[in-house]
Computed example of a mutant assay.
Amino acid sequence: MACYISLVFLLGFPAVYSGSHSLHYYISMLSAPAHEVPQYSIVVYADGLPIGRYNSDLHRAQFLIPSLNVLTEHLELQTKFAQRWQVYQERKMAFLMGFLNRTSDRGTIHIYQRKFSCELEEDGTIGGYQEFALDGREVITFDRENEVFVPATQEAVTMLPRWNQYLGNAKGNKMYMENECIEHIKLYLPLIMMDLEKKVKPKVKVSISESDSGVELHCRVYGFYPRDVEVKWIKNGRDEIHSEEAAQILPNPDGTYQIRVSVGVTPEGGATYSCHIDHSSLEKALVVPFEGETKGYVIYIVIGVVVAALLALCLGLFIQRKMNGFKGSRQSVSTDEQD
Rank of each mutant, 00 (worst) to 15 (best):
E73R: 04
P33R: 14
L71W: 04
L71P: 03
Y54V: 10
T72L: 01
D57C: 07
E36T: 11
F63Q: 05
D47W: 08
H74I: 07
Y54L: 10
Y45I: 01
S41P: 07
R60E: 08
S67T: 15
P38H: 13
H74Y: 12
N55R: 11
I65D: 05
A46T: 02
R60M: 07
H35W: 14
V37C: 12
L77K: 10
E36F: 04
H74V: 06
Q62C: 12
T72C: 00
E36N: 06
H74E: 02
V44M: 01
H35Y: 13
L77P: 00
H35P: 07
D47V: 04
I65F: 02
A61L: 02
L64V: 05
L68V: 15
Q62Y: 12
P50F: 10
I42D: 11
P50Y: 04
L68E: 06
V43C: 07
A61W: 04
I42K: 08
Y40V: 15
T72M: 02
L71V: 04
A34E: 15
S56L: 10
N55V: 12
I51F: 05
R53V: 03
G52V: 10
R53K: 09
Y54G: 13
G52C: 07
P50G: 00
I65T: 09
V43K: 09
R53S: 11
A34I: 14
R60K: 13
G48I: 00
E36P: 09
N55H: 13
A34Y: 11
R60W: 08
A61F: 08
V44C: 04
Y54A: 12
T72F: 00
G48R: 01
I42P: 07
L71H: 01
L58E: 15
V43Y: 09
D47I: 11
P66D: 08
G48T: 02
A46F: 09
G52H: 04
V43S: 08
H35T: 12
Q62T: 12
Y40N: 15
A61P: 00
R53N: 05
A46L: 03
L71R: 03
H59S: 14
E76T: 00
L75E: 05
Q62W: 09
F63M: 10
F63A: 15
A46G: 05
S56A: 11
V37T: 10
L71M: 02
E76L: 01
I51N: 03
D47H: 09
H74K: 01
H35Q: 14
V44R: 01
T72D: 01
E76G: 01
N55Q: 15
P66C: 05
I51A: 05
V43I: 12
